[in-house]
């Protein structure tokens, strides 16, 4: 059962990928969605604005962070953790 956070993130990712939200699956990688580094940066900005969180991601060191962007599901789990940590 998808959470409200998941639905919002899928909507943001779909908008950036110019897809219908129903075409976005949790196991998809950002590569599969056609994301380049700049689209990723825009998507992370939209997520930060939506949930008032700071996503720890530096484009120079994409692997040097705990924030997992290997799939749509991983991004959702990461943001859910950030949102939970706020409270």
């Amino acid at each position: 059962m998808a959470s409200a956070v998941a639905d919002e993130i899928i909507a943001i990712i779909a908008r950036q990928a110019m897809l219908d939200a129903r075409e976005v699956r949790l196991d998809m990688t950002l590569d599969e969605l056609g994301f380049d580094s700049l689209v990723l940066v825009e998507a992370l900005f939209a997520i930060e604005e939506k949930f008032d969180v700071t996503v720890p991601y530096n484009a120079n060191e994409p692997d040097e962070t705990d924030f997992d962007i290997s799939s749509v599901g991983a991004v959702i789990a990461g943001v859910e953790a950030l949102v939970a940590a706020k409270v």
Binding site: L38, V41, E42, L44, F45, E48, E49, T54
Partner: peptide, 9 residues
């Protein structure tokens, strides 16, 4: 507006 981030571009 006291925001802490601006658009990435």
């Amino acid at each position: 507006e006291g925001k802490n981030r601006v658009h990435p571009f």
